[in-house]
C-alpha cells in the first residue's frame, strides 16, 4: 500500500515536473486580425495562463486570412512543436470547406473546446411574426423570404440552412442575404429591410433588451439564463448550434506533450479568473478537453459538411 502511494507520488511529481518542463514558454497563434474573436480569446487565455503561473510567458501572435486557414497552414508546418497553440472554431471548420482549403483539421492535435456563443434569429419589434412557428409558416409559403446574416457559408448561413431543413423548407431555395459583419445585419433588421436576421446573441443583445428587436429563437439546447428567447427546439425545430471556439496544437507532438497542454488548459478552466473572464465577456462555457474534444471535432466537421452541401455551397 505504502509502496503504491509512493509510486503514485513519484509518477505524479514526475508528470508534473515533465509538464513544467515542456510548458515553459508558450506561443498562441490567433489566426485572425487583432481585435477579432479569436484574437480576444487568445489574449484571454494568455492572461489567465500567465497570471496563475500555469505556464511560463505566453506570446500571442496573429496570422490572419481566409477564415483562419492561412494560420492553419502555418500550424501544420510547425510539426512537432509542443509549445505552440492555435485558437480556432466553428468558423474555421466552415471556411476550410467553402474555401476548399488544402490545410485541414485532420492532422492537428485537438486540445480543448473553450467557449462559445449562441446564435439568435430576430425580427423587428413591429414585425407580424410573433413566434418561430409564424415565421416558418410564412417561410413555407414563400421560401424567398429574405433573411439577413453574415458572409455566405458562415455560421449564420449554416444556422439558416439547418433551420430551413428542420422546418421542411428546401435549403437550396432559401433566400439568405449575406451582409458584411453583424453591424450591417443589425442595421438591415432594424431598418426593416429584411424579414429576419441571424447573428451571434452579442450582436443583437442591446437592441433585444431595448425592445427594438424580438428574438424568435436561440440555438442553444436549453434556455440561457438572462436571455429572453425560446430555443429553436421549443419552437419545433430540432436545431442546435454553438459558434464555439477551441484550441489545437500542431501535428506530430508527443502524447506527453499533448497531455501537458490538456492539463494546463484544464487548470486554466478551473481557475476563478477564467470564470470571471467568461462572465464579463458574456462567453458561454463550453469546455471540453482531451478525447471528448477529439470526437466532437470529427462529428462537427461532418455535420457542417452536410449543411454546406444542403445549401449548395459545397459540392
Amino acid at each position: 500500500m505504502k509502496k503504491a502511494i509512493l509510486l503514485a507520488a513519484v509518477v505524479l511529481t514526475g508528470a508534473l515536473s515533465a509538464s513544467a518542463q515542456t510548458l515553459g514558454n508558450l506561443r498562441i497563434m490567433a489566426p485572425a486580425s487583432p481585435g477579432g474573436g479569436w484574437d480576444q480569446t487568445s489574449r484571454a487565455i494568455q492572461q489567465v495562463l500567465q497570471d496563475n503561473k500555469i505556464t511560463g510567458a505566453v506570446q500571442v501572435f496573429n496570422v490572419p486570412g481566409a477564415g483562419g486557414t492561412i494560420g492553419l497552414a502555418q500550424l501544420l508546418n510547425s510539426k512537432g512543436d509542443g509549445n505552440l497553440l492555435m485558437t480556432m472554431g466553428l468558423v474555421m471548420v466552415g471556411a476550410i470547406q467553402t474555401n476548399r482549403s488544402k490545410a485541414t483539421l485532420d492532422r492537428v492535435t485537438p486540445i480543448a473546446r473553450l467557449t462559445g456563443e449562441y446564435e439568435v434569429l430576430v425580427v423587428p419589434a413591429e414585425s407580424k411574426y410573433r413566434t418561430m412557428a409564424d415565421l416558418v409558416a410564412a417561410w413555407k409559403q414563400n421560401p424567398g423570404l429574405p433573411i439577413a446574416g453574415g458572409s455566405a457559408g458562415g455560421t449564420d448561413h449554416i444556422l439558416v440552412g439547418l433551420l430551413a431543413d428542420a422546418g421542411g423548407i428546401d435549403p437550396t431555395k432559401i433566400n439568405y442575404v449575406p451582409f458584411s459583419g453583424g453591424g450591417e445585419t443589425l442595421a438591415a433588421v432594424l431598418g426593416n429591410q429584411v424579414a429576419a436576421g441571424v447573428a451571434g446573441y452579442g450582436e443583437f443583445e442591446a437592441q433585444i433588451k431595448a425592445g427594438k428587436l424580438r428574438a424568435l429563437g436561440i440555438s442553444s439546447k436549453k434556455r440561457v439564463k438572462g436571455i429572453d428567447a425560446p430555443t429553436f427546439v421549443e419552437g419545433g425545430l430540432n436545431v442546435e448550434l454553438a459558434n464555439w471556439r477551441g484550441i489545437v496544437a500542431p501535428p506530430g507532438i508527443s502524447a506527453q506533450e499533448k497531455q501537458a497542454l490538456v492539463a494546463a488548459l484544464d487548470r486554466m478552466h478551473a481557475s476563478k479568473e477564467w470564470k470571471d473572464t467568461l462572465a464579463k465577456r458574456n462567453w458561454e462555457d463550453l469546455y471540453q478537453s482531451g478525447s471528448k474534444f477529439d470526437v466532437f471535432l470529427k462529428v462537427e466537421q461532418s455535420r457542417i459538411n452536410k449543411v454546406l452541401k444542403n445549401i449548395g455551397l459545397v459540392k
Partner: peptide
C-alpha cells in the same frame, strides 16, 4: 466596449 463587458446602445 465588450472587453469591459459593456454593450453600446440605447441602454448604455
Amino acid at each position: 466596449f465588450q472587453q469591459y463587458g459593456l454593450q453600446p446602445g440605447p441602454l448604455l
